[in-house]
């Protein structure tokens, strides 16, 4: 069996204690294959964001373990986690993805710069032109449209060739056409560049771009769907609420 890009084993995350105890993740075990585009769906409070945050090493588990590649995150120090993030993990957030004082290209190469690594400019140029930002490289975020800003964010996530990219509602702030472009691009990054992406979304259309949809409710995995279509996903979520 090939190594998973990331996985959890019996992952539980509990906030608070006693009466106010909230079980955000309840004994979740799941793996993400390399070069796979996974969407995680679920209603508010289902634990989908918590799952992503614990997978990315931003939030420690209460019990269980998570792995990026072969590395178990629970045993890492805060510094090691940071280094792991900048080498092996890419992030795309819903908004405010970019550092306002840096140009587009500086934002893209930021994780590599922080690691004092050598930026692979051929690769970066390739990524930049693929996302269609070749003529926007030296613009600052406030000179870019929302869609362009998200494309910069995607390019940044790709630039360091991470083992896995976590995307948190990456199209949540975009109109459907611009959002579609971003999702198209994310899918092609998986197909053509072999990238692994885990995306949290509540949008059935966005989920339909993925290879597999994982449904969460009350901190537990309740279902999975391979090669989803928007309609199928939509039907499934409707039933989840019951």
């Amino acid at each position: 069996m090939t190594t998973m890009a990331a996985r959890t084993e019996g992952a539980s995350k509990i906030y608070g204690s006693g009466d106010t105890e909230v079980r955000a993740l309840d004994n979740v075990s799941i793996g993400f294959n390399p070069s796979e585009f996974t969407a995680i769906m679920g209603p508010s409070g289902s634990g989908k964001s918590t799952l992503m945050h614990t997978l990315a090493g931003l939030d420690p588990l209460t019990s269980g373990s998570t792995y990026i590649g072969d590395v178990e995150l629970g045993s890492l120090s805060e510094k090691e986690l940071t280094l792991l993030r900048r080498q092996k993990v890419g992030f795309i957030f819903q908004a405010f993805n970019l550092i306002p004082t840096l140009t587009a290209i500086e934002n893209i190469t930021l994780p590599v710069d922080l690691a004092k690594g050598q930026v692979d400019m051929t690769w970066v140029d390739n990524v930049v032109s693929t996302v269609g930002l070749a003529d926007r490289k030296t613009h600052r975020p406030d000179e870019l449209s929302g869609g362009q800003q998200q494309r910069v964010a995607v390019a940044r996530a790709l630039a360091s060739k991470p083992e896995i990219i976590f995307a948190d509602e990456p199209t949540g702030n975009l109109d459907s056409k611009t959002g579609g472009e971003i999702l198209d691009f994310m899918r092609s990054a998986v197909r053509e560049l072999g990238q692994t992406i885990v995306m949290v979304t509540h949008d059935a259309v966005a989920a339909s771009y993925s290879d597999r949809v994982v449904f969460l409710a009350d901190g537990k995995i309740v279902d999975e769907m391979a090669n989803p279509t928007a309609d199928a996903v939509f039907d499934r979520i409707k039933n989840l609420g019951d």
Binding site: A56, L58, T82, R85, F91, F96, I99, P100, P111, R156
Partner: peptide, 16 residues
């Protein structure tokens, strides 16, 4: 705050 969080998320160490 948000910006600092983002920097941390993409791999800026506390020291940096």
């Amino acid at each position: 705050t948000r910006e600092l969080g983002l920097l941390r998320a993409v791999g800026m160490t506390r020291r940096q």
